[in-house]
């Protein structure tokens, strides 16, 4: 039951995030979607390492208080959280510039302008 909830929650976040990226047109909203999707992936990864009855992987004076949960996925999630933040920051910097340049953050409008500008550079 707990597992179904956690896996369901994680996959749910991934799908909600993907929806915001695929179906919404505002670039800022797409970035929100990215953040939600990354959260879902992190939850999935952390859930994989859980053991019922396991303790947090921190020893007390060098000895384990009992069976531990798997520490590796936790290390991976930590890494993934920080990576996600770096990418988010770069995305927001680009958003500031795109908004300045085109006055809009509508993904389709931006794509159209982009194609037009690539074309102009050509001729």
């Amino acid at each position: 039951m707990t597992g179904t909830l956690l896996y369901g929650g994680a996959i749910g976040l991934v799908i909600i995030g993907l929806y915001a990226i695929v179906a919404r047109r505002h670039l800022m909203r797409n970035i929100f979607g990215l953040a939600v999707m990354e959260s879902g992936v992190n939850l999935l990864l952390a859930s994989v390492g859980y053991r019922p009855g396991g303790h947090a992987p921190i020893l007390v004076a060098g000895a384990a208080p009992g069976p531990l949960v798997d520490p590796i996925p936790q290390a991976l999630v930590l890494t993934a959280i920080v990576i996600g933040f770096g990418v988010l920051a770069l995305a927001l910097a680009l958003v500031v510039r795109v908004r300045q340049a085109y006055g809009t953050l509508d993904n389709r409008a931006v794509a159209r302008r982009l194609r037009a500008e690539n074309g102009e550079a050509r001729s």
Partner: peptide, 12 residues
């Protein structure tokens, strides 16, 4: 301008 927009769409 095009570079920023292309990079953002690439990033997403």
């Amino acid at each position: 301008h095009a570079g920023f927009a292309a990079a953002l769409r690439f990033l997403i």
